[in-house]
Each structure stands twice: as structure tokens, then as C-alpha cells.
Amino acid sequence: MLDVTGLQKIYPGQHGDVEALRDLTFHLGDGELACLVGPSGCGKTTLLKCIAGLMRPTSGSVELAGEQVTGPPRDMAVVFQEYGRSLFPWLRVRDNVELPLKEKRLSKARRRELSDEALDAVGLLKSAGAYPWQLSGGMQQRVAIARAIAYEPRVLLMDEPFAAVDAQTRADLEDLIRTLWKRFSMTVLFVTHDIDEAVYLGQRVLVMSSSPTIIQDDVAIDLPDERDQISTRGEHRFAELRTRIYAEIRNASQPQEAGKQQAAAAE
């Protein structure tokens, strides 16, 4: 479904070029839920922007269902970290969800149907008439998720979507993502800096090295399909996977401190 091949991104800078991504290659199968973790400043957002078609890579390619991505593809939706800034504050919740559908030229009835379904799926049907700023942070991010689902994407990209919400809300939203992923059978790429979150959510965790970035490891998460915030996180296997990834990220971020700082400045 999603093929990233030899992706490289170099930012030209005043004090020499900064190589944020060196050589990234991975493949996501149809309907997979993969998490991408890496140390801070490793170029997660750069990678996501390249995949989303918002930024051109220096070299390498991104292919969605066999087609090269050169601009934002129609079959892809993105949920940004900054929920407060990715919703239109002058539109009500339902209009926020339906705006991309208008651009898809769907009929009014079909738009209504899709927005009803998506808002219901995130538990916000009652708030359809509210403005985003009347909602809490977690609810705003749910609206952004509903907008992404209503768009009926084949691939859903999420850029650290829960980094700015509190712990309880975050746990609820993690479970929501698992539920939605199963219900709407999408391919999901979830970027996070939180190793626990990656292990809990994913079928697979891709570990990025520090900058200049490569895919350091590709870990299959062999936890049972039904996940539970308390019992799954308490499992021995969960701890093992978490420890393994943690160790890799720590190793990855140690040798190249200078490079990491450069990348952080570039981001």
C-alpha cells in the first residue's frame, strides 16, 4: 500500500547543508497499523511531510498503491499534532468535518451521512453544532480524527497526535484509534516519540535512528489483537518489546550528538 524507498532529505542551510533523513526504506501492507518512533529531532515530522506530499524529498520516492506521491494524494488523510491549529475556528464541528467532502463534490446527503458516521465513531455527534474552541483539547483532536475518517482515506497519517493531551485522554484516544482502525480498515502510520504508545498501538514498530536518519529496526509486535490499557501494558511481552526498543533508541541517540543538534535546529 505504502512504499518508501531510499528517502533522503537535505535542508540547505547557511552553515552547510543539514541531512535530516539519510536513507529510509520501508513498506506498509494494506490495512496495517504501524508506529514510527525515534529520538527527538530525528526527522519524524520531515518524513511524515514527505509521505503526505507536503514536502519534496531530496532523493528517493514515496509510492501510494503503486503511484508516486508528488503532492498530497487523494486517498490520504493527516491528523496533525497541533489540534487547536488544524481545525477552522470559524467553522462549527460538523462544517469542519464536511469541508474536505465539499471539495470532493459529494452530495449534501452523502456528506451528512459521512459526517454523522465519523462524529458518532469518535463520540462527538452531540457536539456537531459547537465551535472547536468550545471543546476541550481531547475533544478537538477527536474532531480532527473524525474529519480524517469522514474523508474515507486508504492511508491515515498521524503526527504525534496525542503529544499535547493529558494522560487519561491520551489512553482513551489510543483505544479509539485501535477501534477506528479495525472498523474502517485503513492503513495507519502513527508517528510518536512515546515508546509505550508505539508498542501498545502498533502491529509493527519502525525504529528510527538519530539524524541523519535511517530505519534502525522493524519490530513486529506479537501482542494479542485485543489490547487493554491495564492488562496489555502489564504483560511480560509488552515489557520486553518496550525494553528492546528503548535500548535501541538510546544507542541510536548517543554516538552522534552533534548531528542530532543540527537536525533539531533544522526542524
Binding site: 503526505a52 467553522l91 469541508l99
Partner: peptide, 25 residues
């Protein structure tokens, strides 16, 4: 807001709707 600009690009919002819904508002 650059995040709103990216949002519009991702969801293919352009042309007149982009001007009225994003820029003017």
C-alpha cells in the same frame, strides 16, 4: 496559520473555497 495551510493542502481544499474559507476568514 501554516498548520491550517497544510491541512488545506492535505484535504485538497483549493481555489475559491481555499480563498474564502481559509485566507479571508
Amino acid at each position: 496559520d501554516p498548520v491550517l495551510i497544510d491541512t488545506c493542502r492535505c484535504y485538497g481544499i483549493r481555489g475559491r473555497r481555499w480563498l474564502t474559507t481559509l485566507v479571508l476568514r
